[in-house]
Design a binder for these strands. Sequence first.
DNA 1: CGACCGATTGACT
DNA 2: GTCAATCGGTCGG
Length: 205
Amino acid sequence: MNRPVTPPPFSKLPRAFYLRSTLTVAADLLGRYLVKRTLTGRLVGRIVEVEAYLSAMDPASHSYNGKTPRNEVMFDRGGHLYVYFTYGMHFCSNVVTGEEGTGHAVLLRAVEPLEGTDAMRKSRGLKSSGKPEPLLTNGPAKLCQAFSIGRSENGLDLLGNTIYLTTGEPCPRSSIVRSRRIGIRKGVEHRWRFFVKGNRFVSRP
DNA sequence: CGACCGATTGACT
DNA sequence: GTCAATCGGTCGG
């Protein structure tokens, strides 16, 4: 077998990708591929929507009040996965950015399913049908369910071989839309949400 | 400890 | 548009 982990022309994003400023990373995440390797195959999705959370300057961020048992992964070095449980039933996943101790992260809000869509449908509890549908992964908790991302994935290093991001198809700046984040009630809200213009897999237009 | 509540989703008026 | 589901994290007493 020995099938390559990242078949050309896609390669795993390097540590340096995640160590840049959070807003830069957020915008640059659009178009990249989220990959999860499982026992039965790969799950792949193209990132089309993200939100940045900026620690001490951001009342809406879990890291606003410093490190706690729940958010400690946010303070890891950039390139780790922060997964949290919310509303008693949902998981959401973030990419940690910046140097160790900063507490910044980018929430993955939506991806376009590219590979492993049958497994995603099964994980989502949806009936089989033909083409990939936005319902599979057009929300932060939906994509976690589709990719089976939960407590055991919290803290994973994205430079490992379980879950990682690849170069994918970087989104041209002209196709990036910036808006206020969704569902934020604390503090004065910022335009720290980024999504691919006109993409039908985005959670909300 | 008890109380409040959330970076959501899906069902429904 | 409204609203309940459901429970761990966080904070106040």
